[in-house]
Each structure stands twice: as structure tokens, then as C-alpha cells.
Deep mutational scan, measured.
Amino acid sequence: MSIQHFRVALIPFFAAFCLPVFAHPETLVKVKDAEDQLGARVGYIELDLNSGKILESFRPEERFPMMSTFKVLLCGAVLSRVDAGQEQLGRRIHYSQNDLVKYSPVTEKHLTDGMTVRELCSAAITMSDNTAANLLLTTIGGPKELTAFLHNMGDHVTRLDRWEPELNEAIPNDERDTTMPAAMATTLRKLLTGELLTLASRQQLIDWMEADKVAGPLLRSALPAGWFIADKSGASERGSRGIIAALGPDGKPSRIVVIYTTGSQATMDERNRQIAEIGASLIKHW
């Protein structure tokens, strides 16, 4: 058993032996400061991975655009179909130039040979490839079927209504393609630790998130040596930015963190910096 498999397999085991986890309101002070700095709403939640207890939250039940963070949920739905014998990670999917949409750094290189379902999930999560996400959405029946999958998990909040890139429109008060921090954190925890997916599929999902290559300026920039993080970021119109993550010290995840912001006029660099500073406060007061 690899170190990674050891880590995921023991998450339920550690729940019975973990020390009490204490919240630190200092992080919420930073979240509120980020709102002031960005001139935008910020949603935040910090969840204990083992118990599911909410440690801190700010606007946990307000809607925010999901942006590309939905791609983790999408690959969770794909893995659920794999577990049920309805899909194979090794199945190759062929597509054409007409299928390519904006920001497809991986799929645009494989027009001649296509990509496997496994490769598409990797591209969608680690590189946020939009065509990969659309191709995967097609395999499960489209955005409405992803919403149905989430409903069956008990998440009646999170919804996907459109495809890439239209889902990134982020119109104020538009509930399409949105979630709430509390709903996203709970759903992510179920995917990573619950019985919905097999152990192998849970491991695969967290491996893809751990290999994320496009979230460096966010929480990863504040991470001390030896800490673990598996994450997925997102960005969209109207100053929207977000990240969902499982992270913790000693090389294993122990908390879920979800951060969303929307409605800012700030630059992408400034949005990144504010999220990184929230992460730094979280780690300092861990």
C-alpha cells in the first residue's frame, strides 16, 4: 500500500482517536478583511474532515458561482459510474476541433488520438481543461445529471445548469451553476471519506486533486513544508474566484476548506493574494 493509499484508508480510523479540534476566530477576521479589500462577498467554511463538524464559517449558506470547482464533483460522478460498472477509466473518447472550447490546454493536443476517461478527469482537475469537462459531462448525461447525482448524495443546493464556458457567467442573483460553501464542503467530504465511492475511487479523486497544477498562487502558496493539500480552484466573470481543498499537517488531510468570492473589481492577482492570506491565517491558527 502506497503512502497515498495509506492516508485515505486511515481517514475513518483516525476519527475515533483524534484530539479535539478548536476553532480560531482570527481567520474570520481575515475573511472579513478580504471582503473589505476586494469590495466583494466572500464565503468561507472550515470543516473537520473526520467528524464533519463546522469549525468556522462566514456566509456559509449564501450562493456563489461554482466556477471550475464543479470539476471535482463531476469526476466524482464519473467515478461513481465506474464503480457501478457503467463506465471505464480506460475508455478512449474521440472528439473533433468543433468540440474544443476556450481554455483547453490538454485536449487541444489530442485531437488525433483522443483521450481516456482517466486522462480527461486528470486534465479537468489538474489543468482545469474546459473541453475535458464538457466531454465528461456528456458521458454522464449533461449538467442536469450532475445535479441529480448531487441530489442523490443529499446535496439539494449545488446545481450545474450549463456547459463550459457559459457556466462562468456569474450573474448576480442567478442561481444557475452555483453552490453554497456549507453544501460544497459537505459534499466534498462525502466524496473523499464516505461510502458513495469505493476506496480506490476515493483515492483516485484525491490523487487528481493533489496533482492540481493551476492553484499555486492560492492556499498552496501559504503551505508550510510537510503539509498535505488536494485542491481545485476556479475563476469566472465578475471578479469571481474560489477554491475547495482538503489539507492538513503531517502529510495527511484533516480539514476541508472552501473559499468563494464574487462581485469584485480587483485584479486576479489581488483576488489570489487575499485567498492566500486567508490560508496563511488558517495555518497560523491551526
Rank of each mutant, 00 (worst) to 15 (best):
D250V: 06
W208R: 00
L79A: 01
A183C: 06
K252N: 10
L197I: 07
E87S: 03
F149L: 06
R159A: 03
E61T: 13
A245T: 01
D174L: 03
T69I: 02
S2G: 09
L10I: 15
G263W: 09
A15G: 13
D207V: 11
R220T: 01
M66S: 01
I259S: 00
T126A: 09
I206N: 07
L55H: 05
S240H: 15
W227G: 00
I244Q: 00
R241I: 05
H5Q: 13
N168V: 05
P60S: 14
D113V: 07
K144T: 13
L135S: 02
I11Y: 12
R91W: 02
G43I: 00
G263K: 06
T178Q: 02
D269T: 13
R189V: 06
T267V: 07
G251I: 03
L19S: 13
T178S: 11
P12A: 14
H151T: 12
E195D: 14
T187G: 04
T262K: 11
K284W: 05
T158L: 00
D174T: 04
L223V: 13
G90M: 13
L197V: 03
E145Y: 08
D99T: 10
N168M: 04
D161G: 03
D269M: 10
G239Q: 03
D83L: 00
A280S: 11
S240G: 15
A280V: 10
E166A: 11
G85V: 04
N173S: 12
R220E: 01
S96F: 11
I93Q: 03
R41V: 06
A235V: 05
L167A: 06
L38A: 04
T138E: 15
A77C: 14
L223E: 01
L19Y: 15
R41G: 02
F6L: 14
N50D: 15
L135T: 04
P172Q: 10
L137G: 01
R81S: 07
S281Y: 10
F13C: 12
T186G: 13
L89P: 06
L55C: 04
I206L: 15
S57M: 10
G263N: 15
D212E: 03
P12R: 04
D83S: 02
L223G: 01
W163G: 06
S221F: 06
E166Y: 11
Q97W: 12
A235T: 05
P165L: 07
F149I: 07
G194C: 10
K232R: 02
W208L: 04
A246I: 12
C121G: 03
H94W: 15
K53M: 13
A16H: 11
A276N: 08
I171T: 14
D231S: 04
T138I: 10
V21S: 14
S96L: 10
S57A: 14
R7C: 08
G234C: 04
L28Q: 04
M268R: 05
A222V: 15
K252A: 12
K144C: 11
L89Y: 06
I259F: 02
R159S: 06
T198I: 05
I11F: 12
V214G: 07
A266L: 09
M127A: 08
A40P: 02
H94T: 15
L223M: 11
T179G: 01
N173T: 11
I171R: 10
P253C: 06
P224Q: 02
A215K: 03
I11V: 14
L19N: 15
K284A: 15
Y44I: 03
L196P: 12
A215V: 02
N168S: 08
N134C: 01
S240V: 02
I171L: 15
Q86H: 11
P217D: 12
L137T: 05
H285V: 04
A148S: 14
G226F: 03
A225H: 14
E166M: 09
A133G: 09
T267A: 11
R91L: 03
M180I: 11
A222I: 15
R176V: 05
G242C: 06
G248R: 00
E166D: 13
V8Q: 12
A222E: 12
K109Q: 15
D269G: 10
